[in-house]
Simulated scan of single mutants.
Amino acid sequence: MNKKFATLDDFLGTYFIYTYDNGWEYEWYAHNDHTVDYRIHGGMVAGRWVTGQEANIVMLVPGIYKIAWTEPTGTDVALDFMPNDHRINGTIFFPKWVQDHPEITVTYQNEHIDLMEAAREKYETYPKLVVPEFAQITYIGDAGQNNTDVINEAPYAGMTDDIRAGKFYDDNYKRLSK
């Protein structure tokens, strides 16, 4: 996609795949002006996926966007998207319990909110593991806003390669037959 990003409307409805400099790979979708969806393919919580995460989404200056949210796990995330440069700067603030027990979070979060909240209460939250990283955007697509077909199944090995090769979504970001 060779779109030039300038406004907040240019950003909303955009779907990204990116890889942090530490090797962690993510899919991320700006579902609308207040929610995001994502799947995690690398790192200590690989296999985790989330839809409808409430987030603060703003344009800092034309073409640069800041998104921040707190998950039910207690993890805080702040991302700065620079899509015209295919770069992201992100900081993830993992509570100690996620660092110690990441396997609890490796699921479809939306079906296990009670489990996330219980773990947050049961285990230590401090000190937080702070992961500041730059990322390279490896895929940008225009999925349109409020497209519930973009992030709608668990991640699998090779999924992002299938997406980049055009073997996963059709032109409207609907899942191709398996």
Rank of each mutant, 00 (worst) to 15 (best):
A135F: 02
G52Q: 04
K122N: 08
N110R: 10
L115R: 14
M116Q: 11
G63F: 00
N110G: 15
I64R: 09
G144D: 05
I92L: 09
E124H: 06
P72N: 01
N110H: 06
N110D: 14
Q99G: 09
I151E: 05
K66C: 14
H86L: 14
D76T: 13
V106S: 05
E103W: 03
D100S: 07
M82F: 12
I104H: 07
F94V: 06
P102Y: 01
N84R: 00
V50Y: 10
P102F: 01
V106T: 07
V61N: 10
L60W: 10
F134V: 11
G52D: 11
Q53A: 10
Q99M: 12
E124P: 07
R48V: 02
E121D: 15
Y126T: 14
E71A: 07
K96W: 05
D100Q: 06
H101G: 04
W49L: 03
T51K: 07
G47E: 00
A68W: 06
G141W: 00
E111F: 07
Y139H: 13
T75N: 11
E121W: 03
D142R: 01
Q109R: 08
G63P: 06
E121Y: 03
I137F: 04
G63S: 02
T73L: 10
A118I: 01
T75P: 09
N89K: 12
I151D: 06
L129V: 14
T91Q: 08
T138P: 08
P132G: 10
F134L: 11
D149N: 12
A135G: 15
D114N: 15
D80R: 10
L129W: 11
Q53G: 07
W97G: 11
R120Q: 13
V98L: 06
G90E: 04
I64V: 13
I64P: 05
G47I: 00
Y126V: 13
H101I: 00
H86S: 15
H112M: 01
G141C: 00
A135Y: 02
K122I: 03
T107P: 09
N147R: 00
N147Q: 01
M116T: 03
I104N: 11
T105Y: 04
F94C: 06
A119L: 01
P102A: 03
R48M: 07
G63R: 00
N152V: 00
I88H: 05
M116H: 10
V61M: 09
D76Q: 12
E71H: 07
K96F: 06
E133C: 11
F94K: 03
I67E: 14
N56P: 07
G144F: 01
E54M: 10
V131A: 12
M82D: 14
K66P: 09
K96T: 14
T51V: 13
E124D: 13
L79D: 13
M116D: 12
L79M: 09
E117H: 09
W69Q: 08
V58P: 11
M82I: 08
T70E: 15
T125V: 09
I151M: 03
F93L: 13
V131G: 09
A46H: 04
T70S: 12
K128E: 15
M116E: 08
H112C: 03
A78D: 12
N146S: 08
D142N: 10
L129M: 15
A55S: 15
